[in-house]
Write a protein that binds this DNA or RNA. Structure first.
Length: 504
RNA sequence: GGCCCCAUCGUCUAGCGGCCCAGGACACCGCCCUCUCAAGGCGGAGACACGGGUUCGAGUCCCGUUGGGGCUACCA
């Protein structure tokens, strides 16, 4: 009801329909994810429709697994779609491999009205033609030798088993202008557009053709995609016009480059959304980071939840130049979210990692859950990822750790360290179990320090090492209170024994 | 090679002619806080690619150069 009251229905007149159209050749990398995000942000911002479409026209390189990967990664990021292969929709199907009839029908139309022609040249012949043109110092361009073939010649070729490709007879005069929401007007001389192949000899559509037919059929209002497609756009516009379609609006977003300024690829380390997930990044942080890569809210705010990004997103604030991704900043953002998000959310996100490590079972009871929450609360402020969080939690679940070697030398080799530890143990033992809090245990320890006239560190450091095996970590009494009385006492005993046996 | 896009600190960016001897964030360095490590606070170093114009005045507009990226497939 509330939403209804604040809805600006005038925006609905725009009828925004956008699509993310990946080719299922591999995992979703951050470039694709960012393109999807911008589409989604725009759709949600304008109360439009976000569509997922699979560009799987190249049967030779489709991985079934890639589809589920892409879908699962988009869902993980929180980018939900209104129409798509799995959910269907009024203008489906949403896999190009299932729409061949449409492409063939539209290609046939172009053939019949003379805008397209059959080309019997083989790839080898075309390569040779290009090579020759290059040798002559000319711009390699198809010479249209198949353009005016007689019907008989065609029939003869086909009788000989040669299947034709279909080409568009692109006008060789004039210019084609791309009106881009981010870059303004970009014009291309039509002579630089070669005769576009729209149908391969195997009968399948080419990317540039299927894309145009589908964008029209699916009533796409805004084509938002990576900049690498800007050069394809004039070709697509020619097809749009020849087919009698209205043009959608175009927005070419800058690309995301690897640290060495080259196009993203697997050898650049973690670039797939899946990897970020397994490395312990939160979707909230990844979305925030990706939004900042190429878009800026205009002020100095950087940490924004998706709702806010959504409400502030617009193309005017999208930059024109490519960006290089920097894991360090993502890592920082992730740490920020680890601390800013509600504890329950972080626990939920940490859950699978803790399970994987064997710290919690498949069906944890409320006690386990309570303890997990406590552990996450005490370690989350000093870790950057869920993997780190899991690692930093280890000693809360295992007491079989080794003592840090440097720590042993520094804190366990002192003359009377076992006496000190025993004093500390005694102090903790004196705190009633139901009062075993950070404040009370610290109070007890401070009393020991005062009585012995020693520095705090002299007691704190050996105790931390005894309890966790580590020299770094949360505040000592956060560890103490989380671990609980019995565990603390037994670990101190264990440490005293160890020192006696190892360092006597 | 041809065509197209782009160009502010190492990285992400603010800047849409005077408010900029250029602001923020990450990373880096120093100090503070402190039981350790983080976090946090404070401070530091660090950029308008270059050359011409236009203008009283240019990071901001125009041209060129250089550099980077993309496209140039019967890949998408």
């Amino acid at each position: 009801m509330k939403e209804f009251l604040f809805t600006d229905w005038s925006d609905d007149m725009d009828n925004v329909r956008v699509r993310f159209a990946p080719s299922p050749t591999g995992s979703l990398h951050i470039g694709g994810a960012r393109t999807a995000l911008f589409n989604w942000l725009f759709a949600r911002n304008r109360r439009g429709v976000f569509i997922l479409r699979l560009e799987d026209t190249d049967t030779g390189r489709n991985l079934e697994e890639a589809v589920t990967q892409i879908e699962s990664n988009l869902r993980w990021l929180g980018l939900d779609w209104d129409e798509g292969p799995d959910v269907g929709g009024p203008l489906g199907p949403y896999c190009q491999s299932e729409r061949s009839e449409l492409y063939q029908r539209e290609a046939q139309r172009l053939l019949e009205n003379g805008h397209a022609y059959r080309c019997y040249c083989t790839p080898e012949e075309l390569a040779q033609q290009r090579e020759e043109a290059r040798k002559r110092g000319e711009v390699p361009r198809y010479d249209r030798r198949c353009c005016e073939l007689d019907e008989e010649v065609c029939r003869a070729k086909e009788a000989a088993g040669i299947r034709p490709a279909l080409r568009i007879k692109v006008p060789r005069t004039g210019t084609t202008v791309v009106s881009d929401l981010i870059r303004g007007k970009v014009s291309f001389d039509n002579t630089t557009l070669d005769d576009i192949v729209i149908q391969k000899s195997n009968g399948g559509p080419t990317y540039n053709f299927a894309c145009v037919v589908d964008d029209h059929a699916m009533q796409i209002s805004h084509v938002i995609r990576a900049e690498e497609h800007l050069s394809n756009t004039p070709k697509q516009i020619v097809i749009f016009k020849l087919l009698g379609y209205d043009l959608p609006a175009f927005a070419h977003v800058p690309m995301i480059l690897a640290p060495d300024r080259s196009k993203l690829s697997k050898r650049h380390g973690a670039t797939a959304v899946e990897e970020f997930r397994t490395e312990g990044f939160l979707p909230e942080a990844v979305v925030n980071y990706l939004a900042l890569l190429g878009w800026s809210p205009g002020d100095e705010q950087e940490q924004m939840m998706v709702e806010e990004i959504k409400s502030r997103f617009n193309f005017e604030a999208v930059s024109k130049h490519a960006a290089i991704y920097d894991v360090k900043k993502l890592t920082w953002l992730n740490a920020q979210y680890l601390n800013a998000l509600p504890l329950s959310r972080v626990v939920e996100a940490a859950f699978p990692f803790m399970q994987e490590a064997g710290y919690i079972g498949d069906t944890p009871d409320s006690g386990e859950l309570e303890y997990l929450t406590r552990v996450v609360e005490t370690v989350r402020s000093r870790v950057h990822t869920l993997v780190e969080l899991c690692d930093a939690s280890r000693y809360f679940y295992r007491s079989d750790f080794e003592y840090d070697e440097k720590g042993v030398r520094k804190h366990f080799t002192k003359q009377d360290v076992t006496r000190l530890l025993a004093k500390g143990r005694e102090a903790l033992a004196g705190v009633p179990a139901d009062q075993f809090t950070v404040a009370e245990t610290e109070k007890a320890y401070r009393k020991v320090i005062e009585g012995l006239k020693i520095s705090g560190g002299a007691l704190f450091h050996p105790t931390r090492l005894a309890l966790s095996g580590r020299t770094v970590g949360p505040g000592l009494f956060d560890i103490v209170a989380t671990l609980g009385r019995n565990e603390c006492l037994s670990r101190i005993d264990q440490a005293i024994d160890w020192i006696h046996s190892q360092l006597a």
